[in-house]
Design a protein around this nucleic acid. Structure first.
Lengths: 210, 210
DNA sequence: CGAACGCTTGAGCAAATTCAAGTGCGGTGG
DNA sequence: CCACCGCACTTGAATTTGCTCAAGCGTTCG
């Protein structure tokens, strides 16, 4: 799979990456499902997604999983309070990461602080979606978020499976599938392929999120 | 169990806050429900809870509310990425806060970073509770978290109403009430008063959170 | 070609919500 | 001091939403 998203070849991002990690060699490569770090691991690095995507999640003893975030190209993740990871992170499809040792990341730079705080706001907003919105509203919020983070085009890719989407939104895979079908039947979205969405009526999606 | 990491009671928490606001005069006082900041406000201060409690929340257009965090005495809150608050914060009962202008908070000190990252981990863990646990498991996680944050005693207070608890856990007030009654009937907890809980079988609560 | 995997769809069910009374407690005023 | 009022909480019954279980479809890959 790994439909290479269009924005991967955007010129500005590449150049920023090259500057900020000028000394770092080629990105580290991961295959679908490959572990990037695990709960309990030492957290002494930051990661920047070059291509592909990353899911950060936690498990319950019986296997229930909650994905707390997907990270798309250009985003930085991996910060932890006390030097130990409290979550798992693995690759969604073929993924390339720039790895920055914490030392060279400069400790608590304003940039790192900014990333962490943005991540906090994003997680808190996601909590509202999961805690107080119904299935259709959750999917609508998710689609709008994915579209916006991929440049705001009406057509965009979903790098992750329906199962991943369910585990991100607190829904079962069946419910995710049913809501996709319903939105398609209503002409709100079109499924170019299983993993490619075209928003036909973004206004309807936006109205659903209030 | 997911919501009460051991490190929360590590001694550095209190001492850091006390040092950093040594020069601040008497705490600012708030009555029940009084606004501390609103969505859209400039975020140029940090707050430390002296007594009482604080709820941080967000609203949907139709009034549905998601509380993303309660802050208890000793805890610091109010950091935001881009200098603008994305949430509301108000007092739960009579509350006293130490206010620290961001300047005197020293910009991005390691301490502030530490607080923000802890808040992030806590929110991500709460997301697992809300996204993937049932009503009984959510209440169990909540009670254990509240107990631990108040010193780990078997008896402790709930500063907030059942409505607040519901809006924190993504449940209705009726469901919260029913679960409390069920746990009481099973002898897992005792309600000394409406807002005072005694854990009779903490092991059962812990088992519920896996 | 067959197996595996990811996705879809249907039917029945269970958990939590909604709607609707009731209870108990703290505060106010007669 | 006691009665009453308001508010927070509890409890019950009916309903709904999303889940579970089960079967079927389509694509990919060996």
């Amino acid at each position: 799979m790994t439909t290479a998203p269009i924005f991967l070849i955007s010129p500005d991002r590449g150049s920023v990456a090259e500057r900020s990690i000028a000394t770092t060699p080629a990105p580290m490569l991961f295959t679908n499902g490959e572990e990037i770090y695990a709960q309990g691991d030492r957290a002494d690095r930051l990661y920047r997604v070059e291509f592909g995507a990353v899911r950060v999640y936690r498990l319950l003893a019986d296997g229930r999983r909650q994905i707390s975030a997907f990270h798309l190209p250009g985003e930085v993740f991996g910060f932890q309070a006390d030097g130990v990871h409290h979550f798992f992170a693995d690759a969604v499809g073929a993924t390339g990461l720039r790895v920055m040792p914490r030392a060279s990341a400069g400790g608590v730079t304003p940039e790192v602080m900014e990333f962490a705080l943005r991540c906090l706001v994003r997680t808190q907003e996601h909590l509202l979606v999961v805690g107080r919105q119904n299935a259709v509203e959750r999917i609508a919020a998710f689609l709008l978020d994915m579209a916006e983070r991929q440049g705001g085009l009406e057509q965009f890719d979903l790098p992750m499976s329906r199962t991943d989407i369910g585990d991100y939104l607190g829904l079962t895979i069946e419910t995710v599938s049913r809501v996709f079908s319903k939105l398609r039947a209503q002409g709100v979205i079109r499924l170019v392929s299983l993993r490619t969405v075209e928003m036909k009526k973004p206004g309807v999606l936006r109205a659903l999120c209030e």
